[in-house]
Amino acid sequence: MNDNRIILCRCEDVTLRDFRQAYAEGFTELESLKRYTGLGTGFCQGKGCLSEAVLELAVLRDADPAGIRLTNIRPPAEPLTFAQLAGLDIPEHPAQADTGEDQS
């Protein structure tokens, strides 16, 4: 199959071949593959590619996909502007005394 024309992550233009080559270069962990290829770091934050990447990694490792640690799925699930976030109340820190005033 022409894996160079199969797009694994369309946000960052990572092809299936890129993924396989990166694995062959020693980036054998999903977290390392993510940083090296850029996979899953675009606007969709992995919604389009993470499960496909885990399945492919399982094939490369000849392992059970259920045993592959997925990358940390960081919040938020979709990009938010700083202005939107600034409009929220600052949640109190769990460790903060209940009278604690936040200075920032």
Binding site: R10, C11, E12, G42, F43, C44, K47, G48, E78
Partner: peptide, 8 residues
């Protein structure tokens, strides 16, 4: 594509 703001 996704019409949901997921993709780039």
């Amino acid at each position: 594509t996704c019409a949901r703001g997921h993709c780039t």
